[in-house]
């Protein structure tokens, strides 16, 4: 019997020749995946440092900036991603138990979760761009002011209905005209003395009052930051796009990988003895979920 035949006897077809056993192959593969995931965490770590340092130095940027985000969408996306993480973990279980059809169904559900997440991200991103609060050169405070006035006019009725004390008159546009308007912007810029509001204090950037009263409040009806506050929120928008953008790319890659193992599963490539690809793609998908678990409170749940 040749050496090759002898080797073959000790190996099943899924075990590469340099591994002693299937178990050794799986544990090596997992270790490799975990080392890769560690490098992913380090890559995101750079962005978390950016976040921490910028928020430490300029808390008001985050207090105003997070009002631009719809917490509703962030919360729904968290649920969508957790649910798809659950179906992924369940899919690994069914793959281990040789239930091929169940695995296909669960991988499809996981894929749909990723798709739902990206659709909601698209809604959020396109809103940001059309309201003049896109990243970099797409940040346009004059376009934002238009959106803000419309938003205030649309929601003026809500506030009256709830009997909330409201600074703005029912018709909000005049607030931003003439001297009142100058006063609204004055804190953000060095104004010429002829339009600066003396009540705003010395010219230059000062910390504005938080736009919402303290204490318990219903979050879905948050006021938007005023144009003057949004001028200070530009870097929040950039940080938001950098962090969720890198995360979104990972969701897309994860969806591609899940599609790949789904198609392999349907072609019968996996069994209870050979499911490592499902397991490792699952680990990647869970990491994507893990990162979002931190991004959601850090970006959407900033207390003002």
């Amino acid at each position: 019997m040749s050496q090759a035949d002898a080797d073959h006897q000790h190996h099943d077809e899924h075990v590469a020749h340099h591994f002693e056993s299937a178990g050794q192959q799986v544990s090596s593969g997992k270790l490799g995946m975990w080392v890769f995931l560690a490098t992913e965490i380090l890559m995101f770590g750079g962005l978390f440092v950016l976040y921490a340092v910028y928020r430490h130095n300029n808390p008001e940027t985050f207090e105003y900036g997070h009002l631009l985000l719809e917490t509703k969408w962030g919360a729904i996306n968290t649920l969508v991603l957790i649910a798809s993480s659950f179906t992924m973990a369940w899919g690994v279980r069914t793959a281990q138990l040789n239930k091929r059809k169940a695995t296909s169904v669960l991988l499809t559900l996981t894929l749909l979760g990723g798709l739902g997440f990206m659709c909601i991200k698209y809604i959020e991103y396109s809103g940001k761009f059309s309201h003049g609060t896109g990243p970099g050169k797409f940040f346009d405070v004059v376009a934002y002011e238009k959106y803000y006035n419309k938003h205030q006019a649309d929601h003026a009725h809500d506030h009256d209905a709830k009997g909330e004390a409201h600074d703005e008159p029912a018709e909000p546009a005049p607030v931003l005209h003439g001297t009142t308007r100058a006063a609204a912007i004055a804190p953000a810029v060095n104004f010429h003395s002829d339009i600066a509001d003396p009540a705003a204090g010395p010219a230059g950037l000062v910390k504005l009052d938080p736009p919402k009263p303290k204490g318990f409040h219903i979050p879905w009806v948050h006021d938007k930051p005023t144009p003057a506050q949004v001028v200070q929120s530009r870097n929040f928008v950039d940080i938001y796009f950098a962090m969720t953008g890198l995360h979104g790319i990972h969701v897309l890659v994860g969806m591609g990988l899940i599609g790949w193992i789904l198609s392999r599963n349907m072609r019968g490539h996996f069994s209870s003895k050979n499911y490592m690809a499902v397991d490792l793609v699952g680990l990647y998908w869970h990491l994507v979920d893990l990162i979002w678990i931190f991004l959601f409170p850090l970006l959407y749940l900033i207390h003002t």
Binding site: I185, N190, V231
Partner: peptide, 11 residues
């Protein structure tokens, strides 16, 4: 400078 410019643009 950006904040300065934006303020001027609004004004």
């Amino acid at each position: 400078p950006f904040e300065q410019e934006s303020g001027e643009a609004l004004k």
